[in-house]
Design a binder for these strands. Structure first.
Lengths: 168, 168
DNA sequence: TAAAACCCTAGTAATCAGATAGGCTTTTAT
DNA sequence: ATAAAAGCCTATCTGATTACTAGGGTTTTA
């Protein structure tokens, strides 16, 4: 499985929506600005996420996007599969299982591919947006049950230049 | 990491050379015929494998290709990295570590990417051609030391699985 | 010295990645 | 009622990558 820039953008947008989960709909423009993503491209991505029912939209003035489920119930695998396809390094799990049954000559190779897929699935199907999104930007209040994410909260400052520079 | 057809062809060719490791140089044509691969494309692939010193060639009539090391000393990760690049699902390990250090906002996401990479690396850096190539076709053709493979290749059990069983 | 075989550089068609453009529809505020 | 704001949706574009194919050059063997 390869994660494309599009897939990364989707994950970043979803993380941002997770952080603001209690704030109602967020405009595309605001997501694009804060995450430093190309606005029109992001629009397409959000459309796909909406069609896959991972987010929902509010139309018209004061509209925007929000998660359809709490961050703790959205797995990274859902987003990655939607945008970048199967987690397997070659084909998909079903195809690999078929090849393992049918292609005696290369069976052991496909078995390794499937192992790699299973290892990725194990991680990505158990990690949720709540695990990685960062602090809910709403006030501290109560009942925030974020998991690990290593205690300390990040010093802010988002700078475009750094992000842009990481485009390979 | 995504394995392309080219990468698959390389792995198949290497498996075939591993099976015939004791038989001296094998012609491109024979590899292509037996593995059913496009001959001229395979030629390019073998050239790359040669430049990476995974195989060596014998030129002229009676020439061909053979492994430079015994199958048990050639890891799948070497072949895959050569043909299809880094094992990480995004960028490479070094880049991910850099992002984890620098990009506080997305640190947790990149950490997950790195976990996925490490899981793939663990498998592919420990599996060799000897583990998957099948019986050495030298001598009396059939099944010699095949069982060690079975025990090595699948001991990982996924708990709380979301998918349907991986058979076995 | 001719045939066999690898060496190496090019080229190419099709697809994909990463966007951009712009008109259409829905909702809100005045 | 109407203009502005915002998402909806389809089309198009450019460059890179993938999966090959072509063909002449060089080395070795019989």
């Amino acid at each position: 499985m390869k994660i494309s820039h599009k897939g990364l953008y989707a994950l970043q947008a979803m993380m941002m929506l997770a952080r603001r989960h209690d704030q109602g709909a967020i405009r595309i423009r605001d997501i694009a600005y804060e995450e430093v993503l190309p606005e029109k491209f992001l629009e397409l991505i959000l459309l796909e996420l909406k069609n896959a029912r991972l987010v929902e939209s509010v139309r018209g003035a004061k509209g925007g996007y929000q998660l359809r489920r709490p961050p703790s119930e959205i797995h990274l695998s859902e987003i990655i599969r939607l945008i970048d396809g199967p987690l397997a390094p070659f084909g998909d799990a079903e195809q690999l299982r078929h090849l393992i049954d049918r292609d005696a000559e290369h069976r052991a190779l496909y078995r390794v591919f499937l192992q790699v897929r299973d290892a990725a699935a194990k991680i990505l199907e158990h990690t949720t947006l709540a695990d990685i999104a960062g602090p809910d930007s709403a006030k501290s209040g109560r009942g925030q049950r974020r998991k690990k994410l290593e205690s300390r909260v990040l010093p802010m400052v988002v700078h475009r230049s750094v992000r842009k520079g990481t485009r390979e």
